[in-house]
C-alpha cells in the first residue's frame, strides 16, 4: 500500500521534512532581521551575505585550519557577530542620525561588496562540505527515514530560536531590548547605555545568520550567492510576519517553510512562488503583517 487516499506518505513526509529544514533557516534569518530591525529600525540587507560568510568560514576552517564542524558551530557565529559589530560601529553608526533609508542602502552595498569579494577569491562554484561523522546516518522513524543531520538542523535551530525568544521575553536583558525597541531615548534617560546595546544587538542578530550558515554548509553547496538567493525569500517572510514580534518571526519562518514543502508535494509548479503569493495576500488583507503592529 503505497498511497492513502491518493497521497504517498513517504513523498509527503519527505517534502514536509525539506520544508521544516528550509523553515529552520528562514526562522533563524528572519529572527535576526527582526531583532536588528526592532532596535535599529533598519532592514539589514547584509544578513544573507553574513549567512554566506558563516558557511564559508566553516568550509575554510575545515579545509585549511583543521577546524572541526563542532568547533565551527561555536566559533563561526562569534566571528561573524564580531564582524557585524564592526559594520555597525564603523559604517552604520556614523550615518544613524540620517534617514534610515541610508543605513538600509548601506547594508545593501555591504552585501554586494562581500558577495563580490567572495566570488572573486573563491569563484562562484559551490564548495563541498561533508556532514560530520557523528551526525551521519539515517534514523528510522517508522513512518519515514530521517537523515540524522537534517533532524539536527531542525533541533538546533528550534533550540536557538526558542532560547532567543525566551531571553527576550522573559529576562531583564530582554526587557531592556523590548523597551529600547519601543522608546530608546527614554531607556537611555533611565541610564542604560543604548548605543552599546544597539551594537551588541546587531552583533547578535548577525551571529544568528552566521550560525545558520554553518548549519547550512553540509547540506547546501557553499557558494558566494547562497545568501542572496535565500534572502529574497526571507524578506518575503519578514513582510508576511510583520516586524512586530520576535515570536512572529520564528513562527512565520517555520510555517512558510512547511507551506513551501507541502506545495512541492501537491503542486510543485507553484513551490517557488507560493511564499510570494502568500505575501501578496497578506499585504492586501493586513499590510502590517500577521504579527505586526499597525502604525
Amino acid at each position: 500500500m503505497d498511497t492513502i487516499l491518493g497521497i504517498n506518505p513517504v513523498a509527503l513526509f519527505g517534502q514536509l521534512l525539506v520544508g521544516l529544514i528550509n523553515g529552520s533557516f528562514y526562522a533563524l534569518l528572519s529572527l535576526g532581521l527582526a531583532i536588528i530591525f526592532g532596535l535599529l529600525r533598519i532592514i539589514n540587507f547584509a544578513q544573507g551575505a553574513l549567512y554566506m560568510i558563516g558557511a564559508f568560514l566553516a568550509w575554510l576552517g575545515l579545509e585549511y585550519w583543521g577546524l572541526s564542524y563542532g568547533w565551527a558551530l561555536l566559533i563561526v557565529p562569534l566571528v561573524v557577530g564580531l564582524f557585524g559589530i564592526l559594520i555597525e560601529r564603523f559604517l552604520i553608526r556614523p550615518i544613524a542620525h540620517e534617514d534610515h533609508l541610508y543605513s538600509l542602502l548601506l547594508t545593501f552595498g555591504v552585501a554586494l561588496v562581500l558577495q563580490g569579494v567572495f566570488s572573486h577569491v573563491f569563484g562562484s562554484s559551490g564548495k563541498p562540505y561533508s556532514i560530520p561523522e557523528f551526525l551521519q546516518g539515517v534514523a528510522n522513524l517508522g513512518f519515514m527515514y530521517l537523515p540524522i543531520y537534517r533532524g539536527w538542523i531542525i533541533v538546533v535551530s528550534l533550540l536557538v530560536c526558542f532560547g532567543t525568544w525566551w531571553a527576550i521575553e522573559k529576562t531583564k536583558l530582554g526587557a531592556y531590548l523590548r523597551a529600547g525597541t519601543e522608546n530608546a531615548r527614554l531607556l537611555q534617560a533611565f541610564g542604560i547605555n543604548v548605543p552599546l546595546m544597539v551594537t551588541l544587538t546587531f552583533g547578535f542578530g548577525v551571529a544568528l545568520a552566521g550560525l545558520a550558515g554553518v548549519l547550512a554548509a553540509p547540506i547546501y553547496s557553499v557558494s558566494p550567492d547562497m545568501g542572496a538567493n535565500l534572502l529574497i525569500v526571507v524578506f518575503a517572510i519578514v513582510v508576511i510576519g510583520g516586524m512586530g514580534s520576535i515570536g512572529g518571526a520564528i513562527i512565520t519562518g517555520i510555517s512558510m517553510g512547511v507551506i513551501e514543502g507541502l506545495t512541492k508535494y501537491f503542486y510543485p509548479e507553484a513551490s517557488n512562488t507560493i511564499i510570494f503569493m502568500v505575501m501578496v495576500v497578506v499585504l492586501l488583507i493586513k499590510p502590517a503583517g500577521l504579527f505586526g503592529k499597525e502604525v
Binding site: E182, A189, F190, G191
Partner: peptide
C-alpha cells in the same frame, strides 16, 4: 545621555513612557 541618570536624577516624561511590551 545614559550617564545623566546615574548622577541621581529620575525623569518622568509627559507621555508617561510606560512600555507596552
Amino acid at each position: 545621555a545614559h550617564r545623566i541618570a546615574h548622577l541621581g536624577i529620575g525623569f518622568c516624561p509627559e507621555e508617561r513612557g510606560i512600555f507596552s511590551s
